[in-house]
Design a protein around this nucleic acid. Structure first.
Length: 559
DNA sequence: GGACGGTGAAACTTCAGGTTGCCTC
DNA sequence: GAAGTTTCACCGTCC
């Protein structure tokens, strides 16, 4: 049986989640007094602080992490935990991690001041590091977290309190796997900090208590399943096997896959053969693979699209990856996303209608951007209106090739709108309030968009679409800085971001030459003296080009 | 009698995370 | 399925 390292140092128990009249709780044979207003998890967390230790509380959703940290803060106040100068300073840094604090920043800063914090992937990287560092240094005493913190983090947590062991899966609430429970329990009593740790589960009823003990404390971890069983992963690996020339025919491929853990586990070779056939068909139909043994067709374009059916006639056909296929594989792009992008780019190339919205929508349709923001009741009117406005110019209407899923297509549209607002220079707080996308999530999606833009420009280059290549390079820069096109030249200068660029632009300083010509006093009044001097120095030297973040000359043309 | 605030029940809404890529045209 | 949030009816208090 597999156990995480150091797991044997963790003492485990189950306690009730709620109660009405009890004022004490027995945990690991010790009595913990509880204020009548506190929930047991918060009381146990506060008790951990009282004995001079630290605790991690695991919950099932981000919202719950935030709420729980407030409950812990309240319990800490009752044990007279004194906020100190370190907490004040940390709280200040967390509040000002973004140029404009969002409500989430304010909420986090408020609990940190009281000795606790929440932690999930919706936080931006800086805030996450500040929380982890604060906990490691013993400044923050309790963290309420989603499973972000469950694996691979060595933190000085004496107790792990698992408030929820069920999670929403799309078809109701399911118990989390035993392996995941073990990962969480294993966060307590790390060898570098304690000689043992305590893992505490919370049960709703007595029956629940017994079933949790049976399932998690006495239960065996689940079998491990091969990730190749997921078709997107298999699709990518099949393409890369041909791209690297590890295999060169269908029978080669079957032989290779037969030796993997996936085939060992799946065991039905005939079924695997059919799946591989389908994938080769898809890759061939999209021009990522070609059959070398087939006679070349007249036009190069036709040659890229040999029918999958033709290919199936013989298992011994020599198959190789096309130039396009090799590039897609090296870019680590899911071939399905590549296919969506290529179809969209071709439509754009033929129709010459591609505007910024269409391009952003096309890229937003790629699988890599999942999970999409959820569509709320109040969103429908605006989404329907936006769809109607842009419908004729959309480059991807097939919604990931999964038919026209109404909600999914609206989610993609919602994400597109959020990116458009970003390009309209809206800040993170606005995006959070308007679209429910946290700064951390948005930053992650921007990075993926950056990569997708790069992939799209590479694809355009290979397919000889010069105009699309230029557009994709430009969109990439617009997204990177979150600016309107008119600010592109200004943000190319080192130390000028979207805010400073807008300030300069609105004061009629709209290009590098405008900066050269404007007086130092005017620049200083807008940017402060030090920044103004350094920027002036940059644009005045003969080495202008080196000081620009990018060479702008090919972006001067209109999109 | 109207404005206001507090309270609690009912209705409604929402729901984890991480990995991959290239390199300046 | 359950936690958290919002809405709304109801009631008491105050001016």
């Amino acid at each position: 049986m597999f156990f995480p390292k150091h797991y044997d140092r963790v003492r485990q128990t189950v306690i009730p989640k709620l109660f009405n009249i009890r004022i004490f709780l027995i945990v690991m044979g010790k009595t913990i007094t509880i204020d009548i207003d506190d929930e047991p998890f918060a009381a146990v967390a506060a008790d951990t602080v009282r004995i001079g230790k630290q605790a991690l509380v695991f919950v099932s959703s981000r919202r719950s992490a935030e709420k729980s940290s407030e409950k812990v803060a309240s319990a800490l106040r009752k044990i007279k935990f004194e906020p100190n100068k370190d907490l004040e300073e940390l709280s200040h840094s967390i509040l000002h991690a973004l140029s404009t604090p969002t409500k989430q920043c304010e909420r986090l800063a408020a609990v940190v001041k009281q000795g606790t914090a929440f932690h999930h992937s919706g936080l931006n990287n800086k805030q996450r590091s500040l929380v982890e560092e604060g906990f490691r240094k013993g400044i923050i005493r309790v963290i309420c977290a989603t499973p972000t913190l469950a694996a691979g983090v060595d933190l000085p947590s004496f107790r792990t309190i698992m408030k929820d062991v069920k999670r929403y899966t799309g078809r109701g609430m399911d118990y989390i796997p035993v392996l995941e429970y073990m990962q969480m329990a294993g966060r307590s009593g790390r060898p570098s900090y304690d000689d043992h740790g305590e893992a505490i589960l919370l049960a709703s009823t007595d029956n629940d208590k017994n079933s949790l003990e049976e399932r998690y404390i006495n239960g065996d971890p689940e079998e491990i399943y091969s990730k190749l069983a997921a078709e997107p992963a298999l699709r990518m690996h099949v393409l890369s096997l041909f791209a690297m020339e590890t295999v060169s025919s269908e029978s080669d491929l079957l032989e290779f896959i037969s030796g993997t853990f996936y085939a060992f586990q799946f065991s039905n070779i005939e079924r695997i053969r059919l799946i591989l056939k389908r994938i080769i068909g898809f890759l061939t139909d999209n021009g990522f693979l070609e059959d070398e043994t087939k006679p070349k067709k007249d036009s190069e374009a036709e040659d890229l699209f040999i029918s999958a059916k033709e290919l199936y006639d013989s298992n011994d056909s020599r198959i190789k990856a096309t130039t396009l296929g090799i590039r897609i594989s090296k870019l680590y792009l899911d071939p399905l996303s590549a296919s969506i992008i290529i179809k969209g780019l071709k439509t754009a190339d033929d129709s010459k209608i591609a505007g910024l919205f269409s391009i952003i929508h096309l890229l937003s349709s790629c699988l890599e951007l999942r999970p999409y923001p959820s569509v709320r009741k109040g969103d429908y009117d605006l989404l329907e209106e936006t769809e109607a406005k842009h419908y004729d110019s959309l480059l991807s209407r097939e919604t990931l090739g999964l038919d026209s899923d109404y909600d999914l297509s609206f989610s993609i549209l919602k994400l597109t709108m959020a990116f458009m607002e970003w390009l309209d220079e809206k800040d993170e707080n606005y995006l959070y309030e308007q679209y429910g996308i946290t700064p951390g999530d948005f930053y992650g999606k921007l990075q993926i968009m950056d990569w997708l833009c790069y992939c799209s420009s590479e694809i355009s280059n290979i397919l000889g679409m010069r105009e699309n290549l230029r557009i994709m390079q430009k969109v990439r820069r617009l997204l990177k800085y979150g600016v309107n096109e008119e600010l592109l030249q200004l943000v190319s200068i080192k130390n000028i971001g979207r805010k400073r660029a807008r300030l300069l632009y609105n004061n009629n300083i709209r290009s590098v030459s405008d900066i050269r010509q404007s007086s130092l006093s005017k620049l200083s009044s807008l940017l402060g003296e030090k920044t103004a001097r350094s920027i002036r120095k940059m644009v005045e030297t003969k080495e202008d080009e080196k000081n620009l973040k990018f060479d702008d000359k090919h972006f001067q043309k209109k999109l």
